[in-house]
């Protein structure tokens, strides 16, 4: 489904990604781990099409089609979803209104009429129950005054609403207590299917106890230096990242 080929990206002339190769198939869960500053969040942003980063070489394919020239919204329309590490606040725009706009804009791009209000309400009810979200929460301004946990839960709620093909969860576990983590992870697990794929970006192994990956990749210094199965994540948890750094230095 997702294929990344020799991807190089830089910001303000400074190279951050230095040749990423990655293939994610439908129905798979991949975890990308690595020490701070290794380029994990940059990779997520570049896949989503953030123009702050300049792609200097390589390409990204979604279902065999290069999305390199796609705008961020076109990528979203094609099923790419990014759960942000730091979701932004939009004062005065309710979660419901934001979701309504997002869904209808995607439909418009596909030439489909706006979703009828009745269906929208039903969808919202369904998905908020799935993520144990209080309905009052949905009329609050987007992320304004939300706790860290609420922000992340809201990200996953949006993922549930938009039903993406490819979901990238960037440090979704940071700032979550154990209960919130479980709710979020349960949500993601319920949304998983044989047709979609999930890329989990995390620093710690903790989240992977709940969202069990099929593959684990270690990103260091802009490159994937090691790939394996979930056991690799356990090893990292035990030994830290130093041995990876040493291996990479050799």
């Amino acid at each position: 489904m997702l294929k990344i080929k020799d991807l190089h990206a830089s910001v303000e002339g400074k190279g951050i990604l230095k040749g990423i190769n990655l293939e994610v198939g439908a129905g798979e869960v991949h975890a990308i781990m690595g020490p701070n500053g290794s380029g994990k969040s940059t990779l997520a942003s570049v896949i989503a099409g953030n123009e702050t980063y300049e792609v200097t070489a390589g390409d990204i394919f979604l279902d065999g089609e290069s999305i390199e020239d796609f705008s961020p919204e076109e990528r979203a329309h094609n099923g790419v979803f990014l759960s942000f590490q730091y979701p932004v606040e939009i004062p005065g725009v309710s979660v419901t209104n934001f979701m309504k706009t997002a869904i209808n804009e995607s439909r418009k791009a596909k030439g489909i009429e706006d979703m009828p209000a009745k269906d929208m309400l039903k969808l919202i009810r369904e998905k908020s129950e799935l993520l144990e979200i209080d309905r009052k929460f949905l009329s609050r301004s987007l992320n304004e005054g939300f706790s860290g946990g609420e922000k992340k839960r809201n990200e996953i709620f949006q993922m549930a609403m938009l039903e993406p093909k490819l979901a990238i969860l960037d440090e979704t576990d940071s700032g979550l207590d154990i209960d919130a983590l479980r709710i979020v992870a349960n949500g993601v697990n319920k949304l998983k299917s044989k047709d979609n794929a999930v890329v989990v970006i995390t620093h710690y192994q903790r989240l992977l106890e709940y969202i069990v990956p099929d593959f684990v990749h270690v990103l260091y210094n802009g490159k994937i230096v090691k790939s394996g199965t979930k056991e690799l994540a356990m090893e990292l948890e035990e030994k830290g990242y130093d041995w990876i750094k040493q291996e990479a230095a050799v």
Partner: peptide, 29 residues
Amino acid sequence: GEDQIFYCNQRGIDTEKAIALIVNGFSKE
């Protein structure tokens, strides 16, 4: 902010619409 616009873009909302949304939110009261 560019981050607000990108956030909206990522959800499938183009820049014009994103600005309209942010401005309407700002003016809501």
